[in-house]
Amino acid sequence: MTMHPRAADFPQSDLPGVIPHESELTAGVRIEPGRSYGFFTDTTVCIGCKACEVACKEWNNLPADNLGLTGHSYDNTGALSANTWRHVAFVETSGCGGVRDTVEAPFQSGWLMMSDVCKHCHNAPCLEACPTGALFKTEFDTVVVQQDICNGCGYCVPACPFGVVDVSPVDGKAHKCTLCYDRLKGGLEPACAKACPTDSIQFGELSVLQARAEERVAVLHERGVPGAYLYGTPGAPGATGDLGHLNAFFLLTARPEVYNLPAAPTRPANRVAPSLASGLAAVAGLAVAAAFLLGASDRRRS
């Protein structure tokens, strides 16, 4: 990315305040309400530094959790939770179709690293399940939990097909990535994307990111990584089951399950009508059976 011309206006290290529309300088995008924003996570350039995890915890004042050793490679947070909104997965593998294949020098493992996050689904199941309206779509097309409205019922937790939302036992409320809603309102790029040293996490307007991701996949295919594909763009794996598309989408080089992502996530609301119909059919069937049995016993008595 070339330097934005406005960057020359701020040469000093000590700034008097926040730079207006700072995201233009750091992410090349001006944040304006009414547009759709998201993350493009290119796992082929993730080095597993966890700067995103740290930046997220620092900005959102989140406590360190899951203390101790997980025993899973260099993964120390384990999974997304109420206190961990970015999770860098370390998948030790061998042979993923090009990138980090089994041709490394001795004693080098094949690692797949991916910074997982809330997907900010277009048709967000957590939002659909929320009975209080605490989960809502922001003016930036992201999904956020309003803490003062959340009653901690936890319906959003099983509704999320990615296992992102979590209710904290400490404050009894649901928590997840807000895509730095407060920063977006201030014209700042989300903390994780800003901290990413390799631009594995890219923030921007969704249509721009999707086009950039398609180009990146084509480049990787040219360079001999035929297994590279997108997860969460319209029509791609991850954007199945009426989810529409994911505002936080990924470029992967192995099956989604390898990264602990569902191969075909679905919207639980799709199962409401069939469940209701099967329930009603079961009740009707039982009623018919009961009527038949009672009728038979009456006939025997007479």
């Binding site: 004042n61 406590p63 803490q147 404050d171």
Partner: peptide, 14 residues
């Protein structure tokens, strides 16, 4: 030090 407002605290986050 980092604190989290407990679920039984007589106060709200706002």
């Amino acid at each position: 030090h980092l604190f989290i407002l407990g679920r039984n605290a007589a106060g709200e986050a706002d």
